[in-house]
Design a protein around this nucleic acid. Sequence first.
DNA 1: GCATGGCAGCAGTGATCACAAATCCGGCGC
DNA 2: GCGCCGGATTTGTGATCACTGCTGCCATGC
Lengths: 216, 216
Amino acid sequence: MQTQTRPTDIAQVAHDRIYRSLRQKIMHGELAPGQALTLRGLANTYGVSMTPVREALRRLAAEGALTLSASGRVTTPELSPERIEELAALRALIETELASRALPRAHLALIERLQSINSANAEAAVKGDAVGYIRTNLEFHRTLYLRAQAPAMLAIAETVWLQLGPTMRAVYARLTRTEAPRHHRMIIAALKAGDEPALRLAVRTDVTHGLRHLTQ
Amino acid sequence: MQTQTRPTDIAQVAHDRIYRSLRQKIMHGELAPGQALTLRGLANTYGVSMTPVREALRRLAAEGALTLSASGRVTTPELSPERIEELAALRALIETELASRALPRAHLALIERLQSINSANAEAAVKGDAVGYIRTNLEFHRTLYLRAQAPAMLAIAETVWLQLGPTMRAVYARLTRTEAPRHHRMIIAALKAGDEPALRLAVRTDVTHGLRHLTQ
DNA sequence: GCATGGCAGCAGTGATCACAAATCCGGCGC
DNA sequence: GCGCCGGATTTGTGATCACTGCTGCCATGC
């Protein structure tokens, strides 16, 4: 019983480390759409053999974060406008539900944390730091949704973020400024007021705003 | 250029074959919750080495169809009531949206196909064929949702079905009878009438009905 | 009788290798 | 000069193996 494994059930093995590393890069928009990844190349980069790299890539491909060509080559996806519209609709559907479920549990400490993340988000925006912008933006949403106590829903929301990752960079590169924190402030205001319809609207607006102009 | 590969981009390799086989078994409720799967055992069953089995299992685990213990052992998941409630809510959210999108494209040929699938579903119900019941039930939904032209949404809906697979058998074992086709007939009636609110309600009722009593 | 310790078998992980298919590139012929 | 052919290289796939840690069982001692 007195094993020295971590208290979590998170395996600390090589393929998992590589999976997390690549997943973060993809979700934060550090990889451009259409970029090719090779087993031997990544194995060399991470100093391991092809085996754990293959598992990490296959897992990411299963989650839609990467595309497998017919010959097994993996690349980051280049999304069609229709696909982007779908993923934006999914974000709106799932995240409004998550926000609704988080609302009754959103106490002052959470709202303060959201405001703090929002400051970092605005800072990244004015500095033109696209990766930092995306990272803090997702952190804002994740922090709120964690309160919903709905891990399966959150996992699916994150899967959608992952699929949008490579595209996100292109999206946010052009709008940045202090644009998006406005919607985040609307979310915070609705949380403070306990106004569920306003919260749902604010979340829906926030998640679809940046993607809408890409779907035409 | 004159390769003999299929025109689709679906790889016909060993790990993919094993993945599809296991995925179907899980989604159709052929595997009981908590059942353990071993790499060497499956490798033997399918007549391959551990490598492709490992990839298939990891892919299924990534989709939530299987659970990985801390030591790497994989089993079919035993879902908590909270998790089931979440997954039912996700089904309701996503599938009402898919049905709405399919509605304007639902012509008579589709409705006739749905009725035909529904007959097979009723037949499986009276025969007490749980696997056949689940299979035709999912086929009914998938056939409708394919008309929505929303592959990303459908993929996520199927992921949810996959997670519910092992649990579904236990659910439908107790209610079967000609119970569920009633909701399916409501869906068909709403499609014929072009009545979107009724369609959304019928879908929501159908997907949450069987799961609701498990969430308490 | 029960608890504990050790040992054997079992299960997953990652490295290495042989192989096949796809891709790329240079040269040859028209 | 252009296009096509063929080989070299790259890349993914699957098998095998050594290794580690876990599991479970049996025997031993209290």
